[in-house]
Design a protein around this nucleic acid. Sequence first.
DNA 1: TAATTTTGATAAATCGTTTTAGTAAACTTA
DNA 2: TAAGTTTACTAAAACGATTTATCAAAATTA
Lengths: 338, 338
Amino acid sequence: MAKKKLSIKDIAKTLGVSITTVSFILNGKAKEKRISEELTKKVQRYIKEVGYTPSHLAQSLRLGKSKVIVFMVEDISNQFFASIARLIEEKAYLNGYKIIYCSTENETAKAKELINTFKVRNVDGFIITPTPDLEESVKGLLDEGFGLVLFDRWMPDVLCSYVIVENEKSAFEATQHLIDRGCKKVALITVESHQIQMTDRLKGYQNAISQNQLSPYVFQVKFHNMAQGYDRILDFFSNNPGIDGVFFTTNYLAFEGLEAMGNLGIDVPGQVKVVSFDDHYFFNLYKPKITAIEQPLELIAEKLMEAILHQLDEAEMNSGPKQFILSNKLNIRESSTI
Amino acid sequence: MAKKKLSIKDIAKTLGVSITTVSFILNGKAKEKRISEELTKKVQRYIKEVGYTPSHLAQSLRLGKSKVIVFMVEDISNQFFASIARLIEEKAYLNGYKIIYCSTENETAKAKELINTFKVRNVDGFIITPTPDLEESVKGLLDEGFGLVLFDRWMPDVLCSYVIVENEKSAFEATQHLIDRGCKKVALITVESHQIQMTDRLKGYQNAISQNQLSPYVFQVKFHNMAQGYDRILDFFSNNPGIDGVFFTTNYLAFEGLEAMGNLGIDVPGQVKVVSFDDHYFFNLYKPKITAIEQPLELIAEKLMEAILHQLDEAEMNSGPKQFILSNKLNIRESSTI
DNA sequence: TAATTTTGATAAATCGTTTTAGTAAACTTA
DNA sequence: TAAGTTTACTAAAACGATTTATCAAAATTA
């Protein structure tokens, strides 16, 4: 087993030339370094014949670049993050990069630990959905010259590349949509979080409510986990009977909320109209189909890779950060119309 | 920026000792190599003080092990694979391994290309859901001494480690369950595939049908993509009016099938009872709740890591392959009972 | 006291590349 | 024909670790 992998040294010895020559030819520097055409051809032919490929480890060690990007998200099994993972994969491989993933579970301590682990592991760049209070770690990465792009959330205090969506604007539109459909008591059901993607959604809701001279009904679910979320939302609806419209700021909340409403015998959309952030395959299957804000996954992935590759590209290293704020799409379905 | 990382050489120079000494101490060989306790302490103190960590790249190059495992699945954005990814992540990191993912889209050419790419990249092991006709590539990996575990599917012709579930048995049980609930014309809706996980499910269905002296109604959807699948299944129900039970071999087929049945005005479970392979969060949310076969995700992940780490562990390198066949659980819900 | 063993440390090879700084030989130039 | 230039190629250092072989001094033995 395990026939030893050929090294550049083996090639050189067999062909009776120097390692340097082979290396130059391999790296397309034959012309520049004045290696004769004849020898170049000969070496190339032999390399092809034996199917030699250079050791990336050795290259990484020598060049100080490992061609690895860390994709650090809240939870890789979450459909949103898994979808992005899928979409960036191809672009990364096309550019010779590998992607290592890891999940923070939105815990700051875990995120910091992961960042330290990977810093030491000679990765080149990080794509991160930051947890709360991660500013210092992130600044550390920048100081040490790692590539870095934030997404889903950004940090107002840190000047760096990011890819986010128009949270406030979309939340405004979703709320206004419910109001336009005749809702008078529109509730916001969100998670208790001070992270900017959530506070922006809250802002959008509040703006729409106040512009229409309505009263806000904000419910922030604490300690978010499936079972607890369901119970809390059930309580909320029991205690707030007049609600006729709900905007959920994440699809998980919507799933739980819809089930709670179902069990309370609340008719959607007859009695309560519903809109959710983060569209999902299942919203289109649900009865009624759920109106939802769709994030532009492909575009997010594209911009993420554009931003990170841009940073890792030697030539453009010291051009400024790339910051993208992308538009969402409100997919209007039965839950807010019939 | 980028304060240069310390190397073992810097440590040695500052302390006025040799690189060798530092290395021995770092690797816990101080005693064995008779480094004096005094010097050992001194070096350790300094290392801690400056926060030195060794370069994994250099170690990998020297030791020929990169501590990287490739997780190669059909589609990382698929909920099943994403969940497994999440579950193996922690175990891998605890053991000092990183995980690189990639998606084959079940295309043999792509899988072969990915395998070649990663072979060259000095990874240590592979966790793979093999595409059709991947036997040769997989054998190649084994010959070259890579760690390897297959999952979801296995290859009868290749002796290697794998983690799979009892496809045939569960399919039998699901079908029998429908028959027990009074179904007389039970259809199987599956994908057209010769891969063993699918043919096993087919076998289970067929056995149950013939043991009960019923007639099989097998529908194999070709060229599986969302839109086409839906259309084909719609046709199938239109052309086979008497069907009173359906077993879907994947949850995607079930989602499409349920929508098709909904649009045809077929009542589930009144008119047609439904069971699906691969339980899903939404089966519990759907109305009616869908009966489904649940694969033991945690156990799969656990066994995958057990098998791969076992192989990568020098000490146990040449013990035989580990093969796990895990039991599923039939979650009986409304779609097959009311 | 001479020979042997133990102790405590190190020099140098190695892993597989890239790249700087040469070096002979062939060719120009004046 | 002596000096300078090109041409075609290479030796050797580096990247940052691990490990084998070696070595001088101290301690033990005979």
